[in-house]
């Protein structure tokens, strides 16, 4: 079938803003992957096209890029899946990474974030011979995180990283959870406290689900981050806006069956956090002018009772 590719190109040697889109029309087997198509371009049409790829079997993590705006491993994305009728495929480098040339991005910031979470096992003592004896279930659970191949797709499409470069990010946090829940590691609390307190830690995630969506290995980084939040609260790490926010959210919904946004904003900041509260005043005034200020005394939802029951059930199920 004919495949139409529109590829974002960048050549740093011509000039800093030498970016252009180049069209390639090629003929390939319908069940080919997008990587097959790009290799075909590179081998037969344009040897200057730059991209990374190695295993062609979705295990090395080299070929992350954006296809029609969403990050994908192109080796496991078939052309006919995305463009069944031969529609144009827009190919761009991953987001939240500096571009080196064409589709090749600088991965050093990605790996710097990984290093930030002390990414190795830290047991207090290890057996001198033999192995650690731990249950298979505890290990099996870690296999989800272990599946991570550090391809960077989750980081590429992370909406928090787009605005906040300090966010440790989905991949590194998922990696952190791999150690937090490893029964052989003895730094669990230190790790959790760090992830909780550090700027850019677990509370920065906005739960937009992008990372879950694009992860090619089912790691579901956001779910790992939520696990970490819960564990942080469990060990008593409660001095964060994030914790107050969650707490206030829950209280408001269980009490009134709906969200009390005024209270949520104030409680998230912390009732005694004067400077944060002052920061909130302009936001409140703006909302007032636009008629968007939530009522100071919230109404109760009509089927409040049902919601309360639901909340109770969720708590019990835990």
């Amino acid at each position: 079938m004919e495949v139409k590719l529109k590829v974002k190109r960048f050549d740093p040697e011509k000039s800093k803003d030498n970016i252009w889109y180049q069209d390639y029309n090629i003929d390939i087997h319908p069940s080919s992957t997008i990587l097959d198509a790009l290799i075909n371009v590179r081998e037969e049409v344009d040897g200057t096209l730059g991209l990374r790829c190695a295993c062609r079997a979705s295990i090395c993590g080299s070929c992350g890029m954006k296809v029609n705006g969403q990050a994908k491993l192109v080796c496991k994305t078939r052309v006919e899946e995305i463009a069944p009728k031969g529609e144009i495929l827009l190919i761009e480098p991953m987001g939240n990474h500096t571009i080196i040339r064409d589709l090749i991005v600088d991965i050093s910031t990605f790996f710097a974030k990984i290093e930030q979470i002390t990414p190795y096992l830290q047991p207090d003592s290890e057996p001198e011979t033999g192995e650690f004896i731990v249950s298979n279930e505890s290990m099996d659970k870690l296999l989800t995180e272990m599946n991570c191949i550090m391809c960077g797709l989750c980081v590429s499409d992370c909406t928090v990283l787009e605005v906040d470069k300090t966010f440790i990010g989905p991949a590194a946090l998922a990696k952190a959870s791999r150690f937090v829940y490893d029964p052989r590691d003895d730094q669990t609390n230190q790790r959790l406290n760090y992830l909780n307190d550090e700027q850019g830690g677990i509370w920065d995630c906005t739960r937009c689900m992008q990372c879950v969506e694009v992860c090619p290995k089912g790691v579901s980084p956001m779910d790992r981050i939520m696990d970490l939040r819960e564990s942080a609260i469990e060990i008593g790490a409660k001095k964060t806006h994030g914790y107050h926010h969650t707490n206030s959210f829950e209280k408001s919904v269980t009490a009134n069956g709906r969200l009390d946004e005024t209270r949520l904003a104030i409680e998230s900041a912390g009732i005694f956090n004067i400077s944060r509260l002052i920061d909130l005043i302009p936001v409140g005034l703006k909302a007032l002018i636009r008629g968007k200020l939530p009522p100071l005394f919230p109404h109760k939802a009509e089927d409040n009772k049902k919601i309360q029951e639901l909340a109770k059930k969720i708590k019990e199920d835990k």
């Binding site: 192995e131 298979n136 870690l142």
Partner: peptide, 9 residues
């Protein structure tokens, strides 16, 4: 294993 590999058990 002692370095951290999560072998099946």
């Amino acid at each position: 294993e002692r370095m951290g590999v999560i072998f099946s058990r």
